[in-house]
């Protein structure tokens, strides 16, 4: 569903992403672990065609994102690290707006259902977003992604700002959507959460994918050990 073939990004002479080869099949959750500047966000931005690539291809369902950006985005949902919404609109209006530009109409009862699913407290959906906390905005961002019912989910530190309970609920939610056949690519610093939700983990360092494995084969302690060893090098 998501495929990187020799995908790379250079900023002048500096390489932000070395040629990357990666595949995320439907039902898989691939977590990219790595320190700041490792190339996780660059990979995500390339899949979203937010930045022009320097080489290779990023494919969504076999379609090149740079050649057909609008068509591939119809297949994707995105949760950024910091969900920025329109402060003068309510959470519901934001949800309806972002869903509508994705071509989906969200009825009021569906909006309430999504709000409950992401753990947004009662009545919060009808408050202006300018009064929201970071965590509340993050939850609306996740609801927006869920409302799209996309076949692939791309997330850049989606748990940022969420309290432990909400983060745990999100993990359940992510496993649920993956169980429905959605392919997910998630950048995170959180080794514990990566092990909990990821079917695969990729470790990135200095713009390179230095390790990639299925989580089923490894215990949590092993994953943490592998990650720390890579970080030490």
């Amino acid at each position: 569903m998501l495929q990187a073939i020799d995908l790379s990004k250079m900023y002048g002479a500096v390489s932000a992403l070395e040629p990357l080869n990666l595949t995320v099949e439907p039902g898989q959750v691939c977590c990219l672990l790595g320190a700041n500047g490792a190339g996780k966000t660059t990979t995500i931005h390339l899949f979203l065609d937010f930045i022009p690539r320097s080489g290779g291809q990023a494919l969504v369902d076999g379609i090149d994102v740079a050649e057909e950006p609008v068509r591939t985005k119809a297949l994707l949902a995105y949760v950024p690290e910091v969900v920025n919404l329109y402060g003068s609109l309510t959470g519901r209006e934001n949800l309806e707006y972002f869903a509508e530009i994705a071509g989906t109409r969200v009825r009021p009862d569906r909006a309430d259902e999504l709000a409950a699913k992401v753990g947004l407290q009662d009545g919060a959906l009808d408050m202006r977003v300018s009064n929201y906390s970071k965590g509340m905005r993050q939850k609306v961002g996740i609801a927006i992604a869920l409302a799209k019912q996309a076949r692939a989910l791309i997330m850049d530190e989606p748990l940022s700002g969420l309290d432990p309970k909400a983060a745990n609920e999100f993990s359940h939610l992510l496993r649920e959507v993956a169980g429905e056949g959605v392919a997910a690519l998630m950048a995170t610093h959180d080794v514990f959460r990566a092990k909990e939700v990821g079917s695969h983990i990729g470790i990135m360092k200095h713009g390179r994918l230095v390790d990639y494995f299925a989580t089923d084969d490894k215990a949590h302690a092993d994953i943490e050990q592998i990650y720390l060893e890579h970080m030490r090098d």
Binding site: F50, K73, P80, F98, A99, I101, G141, I144
Partner: peptide, 17 residues
């Protein structure tokens, strides 16, 4: 600057639209 453009474009909003 606010970051709403990224979310909107990820939803398939074309720059022209």
């Amino acid at each position: 600057e606010r970051g709403t453009l990224a979310l909107a474009m990820s939803q398939g909003l074309s720059p022209g639209g």
